[in-house]
């Protein structure tokens, strides 16, 4: 389980090499985006120039952090992943339109996202569910927010991360560990429900 160190932003070539089952350590900048940012980007389709961060090649993080307000800005307190499935209606569009190359979250995503990942070159990084205190150690710097009016947890923040651990669970070849586990549990369920 020796992890592979990767550096953001990611190119299509970088992403196409990554496969389900690999452990990685993510380095560089990532952008938080959760429910409201996803819906906003999907519905309003703002021009890239209106967005203060570079989305092309970016890795987004499904995360609403805990922050502490300081005199000048905010300090990152803790932040683990939120449930990615809620972003399923919008994610394919973010991948196709804004050129997102990686998604960090928990719980995995569905077939529309997987299809967009295959077509454009993008992967899903499953990080450590609920482990916000441990992950906080890997965040070096925070900038932002963009869209503060969505509330602090829902705004977009830029984070510089060092060795953020994750397991690749969906890749650009159309493989999904989540689909595989669902198939296994569906089978077990049928057995358990047999009279």
């Amino acid at each position: 389980m020796k992890p592979r160190r990767i550096q953001t932003p990611l190119s299509e070539k970088d992403v196409r090499k990554l496969r389900v089952g690999q452990f990685v350590l993510i380095n560089g900048y990532i952008l938080t985006a959760r429910d409201r940012i996803h819906r906003f980007l999907f519905e309003e389709r703002p021009d890239r120039r209106e967005i203060p961060f570079e989305l092309e090649g970016a890795v987004i993080y499904h995360c609403g952090p805990v922050l502490r307000e300081t005199d000048e800005n905010y300090r990152f307190v803790v932040g683990g992943p939120t449930t990615s499935a809620r972003m399923e209606p919008y994610e394919w569009f973010l991948i196709k339109h804004y050129g997102i190359r990686g998604i960090i979250g928990k719980g995995g995503m569905g077939e529309n996202t997987l299809k967009a990942m295959k077509e454009e070159g993008c992967v899903y990084f499953h990080t450590l569910s609920g482990c916000a205190a441990l992950l906080a150690d890997r965040i070096r710097e925070i900038q932002g927010p963009w869209k503060e009016e969505f509330g602090l947890p829902e705004a977009m923040w830029l984070l510089y991360v060092e060795d953020l651990p994750a397991l690749i669970t969906m890749d650009s070849e159309g493989n999904s560990l989540h689909r595989k586990i669902r198939e296994t549990s569906d089978k077990a369920l049928r057995r358990l429900l047999k009279r």
Partner: peptide
């Protein structure tokens, strides 16, 4: 016995 496991990763 569903096999979902910690984090749902088996």
């Amino acid at each position: 016995s569903l096999g979902i496991g910690p984090f749902g990763l088996g």
